[in-house]
Computed example of a mutant assay.
Amino acid sequence: MELFDKNILFLIDKELNRYLEGEGTIYKASRHLLLAGGKRIRPYLTILTYMLKRDDIEEVLPAALAVELIHNYTLIHDDIMDNDDRRRGIPTVHIVYGKPMAILAGDLLYAKAFVAVSDIRDPEKAHEVLKVLSKSCVDVCVGQAMDMEFEKREDITMEEYLEMISKKTGALLVTSVEIGAIMGECSSEEREALREYAKRIGLAFQIQDDILDLVGNKNKIGKPIGSDIREGKKTLIVIHALQHLPEDKKKRLLDILGKRDAEDEEIKEAIEILKDSIEFAKEMVKKYITESKEYLKIFDKKRRKKLEDIADFIMERVY
């Protein structure tokens, strides 16, 4: 059985296109990443969470799209800040349209997210969704700022890193399920369980991303292997290595880390130095995914199955 229901994905894409119908370069730029695909995990999570309790997908769709529009807005701005030239296997928005237009395209997606919230039929639910979504936008900004500041520091702790990714990556995943829970009228106990589930898949998602950057297939992940090393990212893997490596290897890793023009051979050398820390990160992903599924046990077995499958997909994904 397919992990992602094609009918639901078709509905998501159809409605996304409707929100982004418009003439001119700004609309082309805002559609650029969306039309390149993407897994649609966030809106899909919103719909699956809603379906724990209810079945009227049309009711939850605007709320689900709001999360995806915010997500794509963050990606465009993220690529500008990181100077990334590829995402999802294609040139990034600022490479094709220039930085000023890319910033505007991201802002347009941000604004359209709140147009989607205003399309929620029930005003009380719309208000709750607005509160949760706007809070997660703040968290994403704070997380991104922490990530940028970490590049200048060597003494990042594991706890600081986990807090940063819980904001930068995790916040929108938690919001995805929380919005689904609001729309599906879950109880406060159920909402809390879903938040805990999503917190853990959010942490696992980012750590798996960190792993794939070093050992993934560049054609599948859509960007060059080792780009985090060239950018000097203090990932969980790097933090673990800096805490456990002997001094000579630690020094060599720091020589390569953040070297934008590092040769491919140097990147390979850094990945070899990080080998044990990559294994540590894989164990962390397993731990978070196992814990996440425990929180779903208060829901109907059949209805929670796809949420469990999403958790497994995050651990096993290769792109």
Rank of each mutant, 00 (worst) to 15 (best):
A171G: 06
L173H: 05
E192D: 15
R191P: 08
R153M: 06
S166I: 10
T157N: 04
L194G: 04
I182T: 00
V177A: 10
M148T: 08
E151F: 09
Y161K: 05
V177P: 08
R195Q: 11
T157L: 00
F150S: 02
G170Q: 06
E160R: 04
L162R: 10
L173A: 09
S187R: 10
L172K: 01
E149F: 13
A181T: 02
L162P: 08
K168M: 06
I165H: 01
R153K: 06
E190K: 03
M158P: 13
A193M: 04
A193F: 02
T175L: 04
A171L: 02
Y161F: 07
M146K: 14
Y161N: 04
D147R: 02
E154G: 15
L172H: 00
G184I: 00
R153D: 01
R153T: 03
K167S: 07
A181M: 06
S188I: 15
I156P: 01
K152P: 02
I179K: 00
S176P: 04
A193C: 11
D147H: 00
E192V: 12
E190P: 06
D155V: 10
D155M: 09
E151P: 08
E189K: 14
T169H: 13
F150Q: 01
E190F: 03
C186F: 07
E160Q: 09
S166L: 10
S188A: 15
E189R: 14
L172I: 05
T169K: 13
K152Q: 06
S176K: 05
E163P: 05
E189T: 14
A171Q: 01
K168L: 07
E160D: 07
M146W: 11
E185Y: 10
L173E: 06
K168S: 00
G184Y: 05
M158F: 15
E151L: 09
E159K: 15
G184N: 03
E154C: 12
E149H: 13
I182F: 06
T175K: 00
A171M: 03
V174L: 14
E185P: 12
A181V: 03
G180E: 03
G170H: 07
S176H: 06
I165E: 07
F150L: 04
G170K: 07
I165K: 07
E192K: 14
